[in-house]
Amino acid sequence: MTNSAKDKLKNAFIAALDVRPDSDFESLAYGQTAGWDSVAHMSLISEIETAFDIMLGTDDVIGMSSFQKAQEIVARNGVDFA
């Protein structure tokens, strides 16, 4: 994932979960990170879809359980890794 794509993803997490920009993003996890509950999760999905102009399937929505997973899913939906 390019730095700009990764930054976009981080910005989506910052906007949806209200995490600090200097957070350890690799440690963020659904249900464990404060504020990342089911309501915030749907906001996060919306932020990510809008940021990357993609539409995620239900399995991806359910499976997005960490920042790392989010990267994998976004990449699988055509965002460039170069």
Binding site: M42, I45, S46, E49, T50, M55, V61
Partner: peptide, 10 residues
């Protein structure tokens, strides 16, 4: 309903 609401949310 589920799919539509996700698009509308955006």
């Amino acid at each position: 309903l589920q799919e539509a609401s996700r698009l509308m949310t955006r």
